[in-house]
């Protein structure tokens, strides 16, 4: 169990501020680092993996600063976005070299075990420059995992990986998170983050825009109407009733359900059951219809 902590970390390059006063804590489980291109994800990743000094603030792993501290790599596995340029090695040789660099007591065994985990045993005797993008990505993950790190940092791990292999990688990361490892991956694609991580950290133009469960983040944004899908025994009646409420902005009939836009979440939640009971309408289903990461993200980016 390891925890990465950023304490008012900032990083600027000349006049450009890439990361601006970010404070966050990344604990066990899978965390998604989300942000549009150029938001500072790679800079954050570089700072967290000890390959960039924060201009101000601190980055620590279990209390130890990570910059210029080679000891942290005993607990950290890093999957950089960079391509491998060790094309002249086979997959097995590459992973083995990583195991050797960690001075593992049973480097050969560890290599075989981790190749098994990422499902790369069969192509492991081929040279890296013959691999597809997805295979290279899996070998990179194997190399980062070979020493059983408690923290795994992945920079854009799904870039250019085909959908089937993406699923495979996601299962792997989910499993690692369930094992209690701290897994952090960055992405600019909402769908990826949404499928893999409930816990997200959002960075927008270098600032830490949001943090936590994305459903919770969504509920915090009360100054924007929330969309609900509502099914009941009598949609039309309910629609006219809802329209008379101050908390509701708009209602529309949409096939077998109602789309409701709510301004004031609190009063809507109190009023709706009462209204239904008064007018003998049975509520079948009430679900937030836009609590996708995309809407969260669009909101945060636009703000």
């Amino acid at each position: 169990m390891s925890t990465l902590v950023l304490e008012s970390a900032s990083r600027w390059f000349g006049n450009v501020v890439a990361v601006n006063d970010v404070t966050l804590t990344i604990g066990p489980g899978v965390t998604g680092l989300l942000g549009p291109n150029g938001a500072g994800k790679t800079t954050l990743m570089a700072m967290m993996s000890g390959f960039l000094a924060p201009s101000s603030g601190t980055v620590t792993l279990d209390g130890q600063p990570v910059w210029r501290n080679t000891e942290i790599y005993r607990q950290v596995g890093l999957v950089p976005e960079r391509e491998l340029s060790f094309g002249y090695l086979t997959g097995r040789q590459f992973v083995r070299a990583n195991a050797d660099l960690h001075r593992l007591p049973d480097a050969a065994g560890a290599t075989e075990r981790i190749l098994e985990v990422v499902d790369m045993v069969e192509p492991a005797q081929r040279r890296l420059d013959t691999y597809s993008k997805g295979m290279r990505q899996r070998v990179k993950i194997a190399a980062a995992l070979v020493h059983g790190p408690s923290v795994l940092l992945l920079d854009e791990p799904f870039n250019g990986v085909d959908p089937r292999q993406r699923m495979h990688l996601m299962d792997l990361l989910r499993r690692l998170g369930d094992e209690g490892r701290t897994v952090l991956f960055s992405s600019h694609i909402l769908e990826e983050v949404e499928r893999l991580a409930r816990h997200i950290e959002v960075v927008v133009s270098g600032r830490h825009a949001a943090s936590g469960d994305f459903g919770a983040i969504r509920r915090l944004m009360t100054d924007r109407p929330v969309q609900y899908a509502l099914q009941s025994s009598d949609n039309r009646t309910l629609a006219s009733l809802l329209m008379s409420q101050d908390s509701v902005r708009a209602v529309s009939l949409n096939g077998d359900h109602l789309d409701v836009q709510v301004d004031d979440l609190g009063s809507f939640a109190v009023e709706l059951p009462g209204l239904a009971r008064q007018h003998d309408v049975t509520l079948f289903e009430l679900s937030p219809s836009d609590e996708s990461l995309e809407s969260v993200f669009a909101y945060l980016v636009a703000r």
């Binding site: 993996s49 000890g50 390959f51 080679t70 000891e71 942290i72 790599y73 005993r74 950290v76 596995g77 890093l78 950089p80 960079r82 391509e83 491998l84 340029s85 060790f86 990583n98 660099l101 960690h102 190399a143 980062a144």
Partner: peptide, 19 residues
């Protein structure tokens, strides 16, 4: 040179090995 050039030296540097 090539490893510094294309940044793939991070694979060697992300290890507990003396620089």
């Amino acid at each position: 040179g090539p490893e510094v050039d294309d940044g793939s030296i991070v694979y060697l540097l992300s290890k507990p090995v003396s620089r």
